[in-house]
Structures are given as structure tokens and as C-alpha cells.
Design a protein around this nucleic acid. Sequence first.
RNA 1: GCCGGAGUGGCGGAAUUGGCAGACGCACAUGACUCAAAAUCAUGCGGGAAACCAUGCGGGUUCGAGUCCCGCCUCCGGCACCA
Length: 814
Amino acid sequence: MPYSKETDRKWQKRWEETELYKFHPENVDKKLYCLEMFSYPSGAKLHVGHWYNYGPSDSWARMKRMQGFEVFQPMGFDAFGLPAENYAIKTGIHPQDSTIQNIATMEKQLKEMGATFDWDHEVVTCMPEYYKWNQWLFLKLYENGLAYRKEAPVNWCPKCNTVLANEQVKEGLCERCETEVTRRNLTQWFFKITAYAQELLDMVDGLDWPEKTKKIQKNWIGRSEGSEIEFKVEGKDLSFKVFTTRPDTLMGVTYVVMAPELELVDQITTPEQKQAVEAYKDYARKVSEIDRLSTTREKTGVFTGAYAIHPITGEKVRIWIADYALATYGTGCVMAVPAHDERDYEFAEKFDLPIKRVIKGAGDIDDKLPFVEYGILVNSGSFDGMRSEEAKAKITETLAKENKGELKINYRLRDWLVSRQRYWGTPIPMVHCEECGVVPVPEKDLPVTLPYNVEFTPDGESPLKKSEEFMNTVCPKCGKPARRDPDTLDTFVCSSWYYLRYADNKNSSEPFSKEWVDKLLPVDKYIGGAEHAAMHLLYARFITKALRDMGYLRFDEPFLSLVHQGTILGPDGEKMSKSRGNVVSPDIYIDEHGSDVFRMYLCFGFNYVDGGPWSDDGIKAISRFLSRVERMVERVQELKGHTGRDEVAAAEKELNYVRHMAVKGVTKDAEIFQFNTSIAKLMELINALYKYDQEADNKNISFFEEVVADLLRLLAPFAPHFTEEMWAEMGYEYSIFNQKWPDWDEKALIKDTVELAIQINGKVKSKIEVSSTATDKEIEEAVMSKPDTESLISGKQVVKVIVIKNRLVNIVVK
RNA sequence: GCCGGAGUGGCGGAAUUGGCAGACGCACAUGACUCAAAAUCAUGCGGGAAACCAUGCGGGUUCGAGUCCCGCCUCCGGCACCA
């Protein structure tokens, strides 16, 4: 029976009946946790991107299984989130209904893929059995001081009268009505990821992750070393601190800038400047996303009327407010040194503020530009003549003596804002009581269930706020009527710990068993899109560390080894999109060729981490390859009855060489996700088998069969249904996946003779066949006594001869 | 702007990490089988008559460079006033 969709069905059924891919907890000492990022259940069917993530990863997992690992490969759904809610607003279909429907469809399709997912461990984040523990996590973080409330701006559409998620803001405009988006402050919940900034940074280096991803993580955390310096406000009993990485330029400070949002601004603003300052604060609040993101935007700001006292010279410098000072970084105050900082320079030029040079570089410097490098201090009193590096320490030290400064480390990383003014998410398990304030819901009352009947069309309120049934509760502390928190949690909270729940998904008394998770985790191999390089991975690492410090986990990092699959583009080389009309749908190919052909093409046609443009021609190549394998299996059946010879002659030796090359190549390449070259090696093996069949007239039939069986074992992870069928056809026992992965024999890889290239001054001129055991000296002699060598070097002087074993001989002549 | 990564035949992509560039495949060409086509099989396939020239461009190190160093160009990702 030729391979087809029917073959897929047949073996999927058999696998399910025999529970072939069930995880056996008793073998946990040989465990291998292979995890692919779970799916968002969108309305569309499985697309090429899902396949490209899950198909080749499953091949890797299958190889590991055959190598004797007890593979744990779960699957689930990241089921909360905005798209379902937007879809509901558009169509009126409730997010829960559409999500559950979509999950059913996707589960079916994922099963048709023939992956070895263990569905007994499935996790669906929108089910109360899951989000109950999301809420538990929130409470634990709160108990441990890692969840807190503060005011933070949200994107606000004044026309729709609603909060917008970042992805709903398109170029500064509301996605729906194209009104300019402004900002509005709301009291919201944050997770204190910054408490782990240093550890998150330090531990990146020890991970087996793509270097690029590690770099993104480091940049995201953005550690920067500098000093915090205190300035007094003139004529008032007030002071403030600035953060700077360049304390060596302190003597060049000519003004100070504060972020307009700072409370201090109101306290220092003079009556004359009050109006201008208020107007500017108003302006800063309204600055739309598009302006904020524009780099070419001119600097803006106003004078507060107040002056600061320079901590060393005692000079008066003006205090301005400007939105180029960010309230969320450092202290929100900047000491401005226009002579040595581009932004300060631009600002000073615009508002005609003084510029004072205090660092001199080597050579002539154009006074019209800020000099931002390190150099020698000038105009700096007792610090004159020092180099920047030295002055940084000296100046900070001097200030420290008077308690006006200290060394300080700042991080770009901000705390994680988890409140979402949305319906389709995990309710935040907090109660607001007039008497007791913010009170956590007791653990025994979890889950706080998301109500079904809620009006979630956008009208300026969190949808849950309009559900009286949900909002009205009693204070767990005093028992008086109280209100629930109307917001839901960011879906990244769900995905920050789902890999823990997979391990123990049916546990109803705790999120996971500590003992069991300790055995099954961390994840050994994590595979998913590079778009999650920053946030998801950082959040998951943070939650792991937080849970560790609370005593729930004993490991530091959730994902030891990480791979990002590339992106499959449309045949035109562009990103697939409906509007471009270049979307490739897996279903058509699977119907026509079977899922193995589709999966194998994905493995073979691309470098896994790069991806690339789709091509129909590649599919044909795989189809052809599999029929070559099938014909070879038939050929073996045909020969089986016949008698051949027993001895191992040159032909068998040659085939055996290719066989062991294939075993070694496939094993090593597939290990590091180089599936394209793994399959190339299998193609070489089938080619060698055909050659043997054709050229060796008196064959060693049992040996021939043995090699074909090895080919099938090596091919099994990439074409699981097909090889299962072939295995049966060979008359072998079910299942090929219970077979041991072949080993290679290094001895078989040593040939009797090797061909070396003969180079003259590094250019290949000739070849020579030598014994593979020949010494360098013997090789040199053989080369030099070869008749054509003489003519190649005639008239020239041989300077030296370099012999590289198994490779080449280079004769250097003059 | 800053920080990363990449650039190899007509195409997808290889190259033991400094050692015969182009594995494997696609496409193409020629031949075999066929009345014919498809399928299959065989052979060839970077350019050039050749000497030689070829891994984005220009230099360098080395017996030897796709691989290492310096300077450019292009494309792709990340950050985006982070003081």
C-alpha cells in the first residue's frame, strides 16, 4: 500500500490504542522534558508556523525516545487574551464559546499531525482548574511583597472611551476608530520583576540559548553603573537626586531637568512659572504614542522658576521640566551637561542655556558639538588633569564624604504591569474594602470565577465592573460589603508557569506537587518563536526564581536549552498574509501527500533556525525519496527468499561505510536541530543502497536487509507513519519506535585508502590515492615520487611540504 | 542613532570550525525504457577554450581564508531620549 493519508490514520489509531507515547512516571530518572510553546487557539486552522514549530521538534523528541529517554512532551492552549474578546465584540460570539470550539478543532488537527504529545497532561489556561492557580500565584507574590499597586498610564482612546492594549494602537492611532491615542493614569497591579534584575542578568550566561536571545535579555534588563548625586533646591528645604553614568562631567552641569510627572515639580515651581508648568504637564500627558516614538521629535520643556545648588561649586543652576527626562528611570531627574551629552546639548541650544566644557579629548575638538567620550578634566577645579575614569571615582568619593553622592546601579527593566482592563482573562483575586483597604481573597475561596454573562463591548469601563454579580462581595477581613478588583491578569502570567502545571495538571489541592516537579523539571529543550525572546522568557525566568525563593522549587532556571524555529515565508519570499494572498495551507498538502511528507519537507527544505520561502518543488523531492525507500523495502522482500553469499566483500564494505556515516551524521545533526543535513545523509544512504543493489550481483542478503532496517530506524523520527508501515512490511514487530536507535562504529568509517589533494602553493593541481594508515613521511614520499608532480614543480625550489592527514598535501615552492 | 545576526551556483541550502567550496535536493540538459507522455533509471550541470577566476566590496594575516583581523556596502532582527 503506497503511503498516504490513510497510512497516517491507521498508525495514529494504533498508537493511541497501544498508548505508545504515554509518559511513564516510574522512568523519571531517564526523563527528557521537551516543550514546544503552546498555541493560542485562534479561529484559523493549524498553519505552517505551527507545523514548523511542532513537526521537526517532534522528530527530535522521537529520536530521543528511541535513544532511551522517557520523553515528556505535553501540549496545551494559551486560551485567554484579546483576540477572542475582539472577535466577540465583532460577532457577538462569547469568547468562551469560540475559544472552546477552536481548541476542539486544533486538538483534532494536532492529533492528525502524528506528534507524540501526551494529551493526558494537557493544560487550557482559560479553565478555572488552571486560572485558580494563576490567582494562587498572584496571592503568593503579594504575600512576598512581589505584587503591588501603583498609578500607571494606559493607552486611552477618547472616542471609544476605552483602554487600549499596545497592540491595538497602530501608529499612535486607535485601531478601531483611528482617533489619536492619549495616556491616562490608573491604579494598577505590578509584579516586582526588578527585584530579580541582577540574577536574571547573571544567570543568562549559563543557559544553552541562542546567543542572540541572551543578548536581547541582557539589553532588556539593561544594567548601567553610575552615581546618584544629591542637589539642594535653592531657598527651600528640599533636595533631589540625579542618576548619572558620567559623574566626571559634574563640573559641567549648567542646568537640571526633571520629568514632568514628578511630585517635586509642584513643590518647587514658582508662582510666575506655575501656569507654564501646568500647561506643559498637561501637554506631556497628552503626547500621543506617535510623537513619543518619533526620534526626530524636537525637545520640549519649560523652566520651573526654581534653581538647584551645584553640590560642589554651590553655583545656582536652573531647574527645567522636560519629557526627555523619564519618570520611570533612575530618579526621574537628570543633571544636564550640554557640553558632553547629545540630548542636553540639543536642549541647551534650543532654549539658549549655558554650555560649559569640562572634558578635553586628544586633538582638536569642534566646540560646536558635544564631546561624549572619556578624556582629561579641565575647568574642574581640583579635579583638573584627571582622566575621566579616575575622576568618576574621585568625584563620587568626594560627594560621599558629605553624604551628597554614592555609587549606584540602575536597570532599564521596569516592573511588570499585569492589570488589564479586559474581560477575557484571569480575575485578580483582590477585594477592595472601604474599611480594610486592599484585601487578598483567601486561598480557600479560589478560584474567583470569571462570570459568563458580562457586557464586554468597550465603553470606558473594565467589563467586569459592569457585572454586579461579580463585583459585589464581602470583605474577607471584616465581612462588610466590598468590591472585587475589576481587572484581569495579563496573559503572560498564564504562560509564565504553565510548564510547571503540565507536570501535575490534575492536581486539585495545589498548583503542582513540589516533589514531582523537582523530578520532572526543569525543561530540557524548549522550542518556540523568537518573538518571545524578551518578555515571555524573562517573565517565566522571573516566576521560577520567585517560586524558588518561596520554597516551591529547587531549580533556578526553567528552560535549560532553547531553540527558536525560523519563519516560513510565502513562495514569493514575503511574510505570509491573507492580504498578500501568499498563505500556504498545510491541509492541502497533507491530503495529497500525507503528513510525513509535509513534515519532512519542513525538516529538509530549510535551515531550521532560519526558515525561508516555501516551495512546492521541495515537496516533490520528499515524495520521491519516500517512494525510493518504499521500493527498496519491496526489493528486500523480493530477495529474502533467495540465497546470497555470506562473506563481506568490497561492495558490502563500501555500503557499510555509507551506512555508518549516515548513522553518525543523522544522530549528530538531528541532535542540534540540523534536520536538513540529517535527511541529506539518509538520501545518501538510499543512493548507496540502490548502487549496491545494482552493482553487486551476488549479494549478501542478510546484510542488505540489515542496512535497510537501519535506514528505516534513522528515518522513523522524520516519517513516523510511513516508517511504521514499512517496518510492518519488512515483517518486523510493532513498533519501530520501540526499536533502539542505531549506533555507529568508528572502525567502519576508516577506509583502506584515501584520496588526497595535491596543492602547489595552496592551489589544487592533482590527486593521489594513499593508504589511510600511511605516515606523513610516506605520504610526502609518495607525492614527490609521483611522475606528474615533477612537471608541476619543475624549475622551482621546494621550500616545504605540508601534509594534512586525510585531506591534502601542500607543496610550497619558490 | 546604538546593539546583534546574515550575505555562498538559476533556486533551497552544505562545508569536520583554518585544509579539495558548492554535500543533499530542486530546476535544467542528454540518453535508456515507452507508440507517446508521465513515472523510473543513467550521465552531466558555478564561470571560462584555456591559463585561470569565483563565497557582498576593498585591504591584511597565513603554506593555505567562505571561515580569522581591519575598513566599507546591503538586508534582517532587537532597543529606541534609559541620563
